[in-house]
Design a protein around this nucleic acid. Structure first.
Length: 198
DNA sequence: TAGGTGATCTTG
DNA sequence: AAGATCACCTAT
C-alpha cells in the first residue's frame, strides 16, 4: 500500500488534481470496518475564481473554514438535509480549493457497503453519486476537518488512466453559478459503470 | 418528476 | 427570527 501524502494534496492546480485522482483508492476504516473504492468521478472547485465554490469571493463562514486550511483534510457537509458530501481540501493555507468525490467503484468491504446502503447486490447506485458514495463508505459530517493521511480515511495509489479513457465535462447541480456553470471541471472514467450521470 | 429534509446563510 | 436556498436521491 502506498498512501498519498499531504504534499500531493497541497498542489495548487485543483483541476489537475481532480483529474489525477481518478484511479486512486479511497479507503475508510469506520466502525472498525474497512471499505475501499477506486475513484471514478470527481469535480474541482476553486475558491478564488469559481462562483460554484462555497468559498467563492473569499467567503469565510463556519462551514467553509476548513477549505482555507492546508490541503489534505476532509470537507464534509450536509446537502439537501439528507446527503453527506465528501470533498478533499487542496492547495495551501488561505487558498480554499477542494475536489468533490462523486463516485467510486467498490474494491473492498462490499458486504459492509451493501449493508450501509440497504442493498443486496452490487450495482452502480451502490456508490455512484456523492451522497450514495459517502454513505457506502460510512463518511458523514463527524469526519469534517479530519486528516486524510490518518487512520480513518485515507487515499492510496492504485492505477491511473490515459486521457483517452477520461471524459471531461461540466459539473452537476450548480446552475446558480452563472457562467462558471459551463467550466469543464468534472471528470469521469469512460465506460465505467460507477458514474452518477452521463 | 416531485417531494423529502435540515443545516446554513441572508434579510429585515 | 424567519425564509430561501441547496455540489442529491428515491419512488411514483
Amino acid at each position: 500500500m502506498s498512501k498519498l501524502s499531504n504534499t500531493y494534496f497541497q498542489n495548487d492546480d485543483v483541476v489537475f488534481l481532480a483529474k489525477d485522482l481518478l484511479g486512486k483508492l479511497l479507503v475508510t476504516k469506520i466502525d472498525d470496518e474497512i471499505t475501499a473504492g477506486i475513484i471514478t468521478e470527481t469535480e474541482a472547485y476553486n475558491g478564488r475564481t469559481d462562483k460554484a465554490c462555497h468559498a467563492y469571493n473569499n467567503k469565510r463562514t463556519p462551514r467553509t473554514s476548513v477549505m482555507y486550511k492546508s490541503g489534505g483534510l476532509a470537507y464534509v457537509y450536509l446537502c439537501y438535509g439528507i446527503h453527506n458530501l465528501f470533498n478533499i481540501v487542496t492547495n495551501s493555507e488561505g487558498l480554499a480549493d477542494a475536489v468533490l468525490i462523486r463516485a467510486v467503484e467498490p474494491l473492498k468491504g462490499h458486504k459492509t457497503m451493501l449493508k450501509r446502503r440497504s442493498l443486496t447486490k452490487i450495482e452502480p447506485r451502490l456508490s455512484s453519486g456523492p451522497g450514495s458514495m459517502s454513505k457506502a463508505l460510512g463518511i458523514n459530517r463527524t469526519h469534517n476537518g479530519i486528516s486524510l493521511v490518518g487512520e480513518d480515511i485515507w487515499l492510496e495509489h492504485y492505477t491511473s488512466f490515459e486521457d483517452k479513457d477520461i471524459i471531461q465535462t461540466t459539473r452537476i447541480g450548480i446552475d446558480y453559478a452563472e457562467e462558471d456553470a459551463f467550466l469543464p471541471w468534472r471528470f469521469y472514467v469512460k465506460n465505467n459503470r460507477f458514474i452518477s450521470k452521463k
